[in-house]
């Protein structure tokens, strides 16, 4: 049947759910093998962090949309966790092929990596639903408050760290629709053009360090 904007948006929610029907909100067997291959097994920390971030997410979601929607927040968070574990497994497989290593202990014990990855997965879920409510014509609904960069504030995540996962996320999740890839591209642009330059951004410290390392480290002469 012809696609109306609502049907197209609903379709993308159905697609998102469809893509995730076989994904679990627990680490898969392959992921557990990666965890076991680490010098320090990150399993417990990952499970604990997902629980903690879940509580924060549901609380902030209820505050933004209304207490009666807490169940909705749980539902969205669960979808986000499914996508988080799915993309993590795909990322590790491609890194294993690229680097010919199986021990990802440093990466998998890096809390910022996990928080950024989960935030990106939740941003995909939230943008899919918000896109739907916008198409429904209720621009004034509370859900539009949940647009990017809402998720950065919820997880107290630096935009700079969120930025790091975007490209690898898109490469690792081939089922992302073009409107979602465009959305993540816009998030990236928004970070580069404004959010990353907030006063407390770690970017300034990194720039300071690179300047201190001196001209020897300058990768390119100004002329280029």
């Amino acid at each position: 049947p012809p696609q109306t904007p609502i049907r197209a948006a609903m379709y993308s929610i159905q697609q998102l759910r469809g893509e995730l029907t076989s994904a679990s909100d627990q680490p898969s067997g392959n992921l557990i093998v990666y965890f076991k291959n680490c010098t320090v097994d990150p399993s417990e920390e990952i499970t604990k962090r997902v629980e903690q971030l879940g509580q924060i997410f549901c609380q902030k979601f209820a505050e933004a949309v209304g207490q009666r929607c807490e169940g909705l927040g749980k539902e969205r968070f669960t979808l986000g966790v499914q996508l988080y574990y799915k993309v993590m497994e795909s990322m590790l497989k491609s890194e294993e092929k690229r680097l010919s290593v199986q021990n990802f202990s440093k990466l998998l014990n890096n809390a910022t990596f996990h928080t950024s990855l989960l935030a990106c997965a939740l941003e995909v879920v939230m943008a899919t639903y918000v896109g739907n409510s916008l198409k429904n014509g209720n621009e004034n609904g509370n859900e539009t408050d949940l647009c990017f960069p809402w998720i950065l504030d919820v997880f107290q995540l630096y935009a700079f760290d969120f930025y790091k996962v975007i490209e690898s996320f898109i490469k690792a999740e081939p089922t992302l629709k073009h409107n979602m890839i465009e959305h993540l591209g816009r998030c990236e642009q928004q970070i580069m053009e404004s959010i990353a330059w907030k006063a407390d951004s770690p970017l300034f410290e990194l720039l300071r360090q690179s300047r201190e390392e001196g001209p020897g480290e300058q990768a390119e002469p100004p002329a280029t």
């Binding site: 990322m91 491609s94 890194e95 690229r98 680097l99 990802f104 440093k106 990466l107 890096n110 910022t112 990596f113 790091k164 996962v165 490209e167 690898s168 898109i170 490469k171 073009h178 890839i181 465009e182 993540l184 591209g185």
Partner: peptide, 21 residues
């Protein structure tokens, strides 16, 4: 994908971005 400008080099990936290489 025409919808996104990929900027990472062949030798760059998520491990390098999080200083885990």
């Amino acid at each position: 994908s025409p919808d996104y400008h990929f900027g990472l080099e062949e030798h760059e990936g998520i491990s390098e971005l999080f200083d885990c290489d």
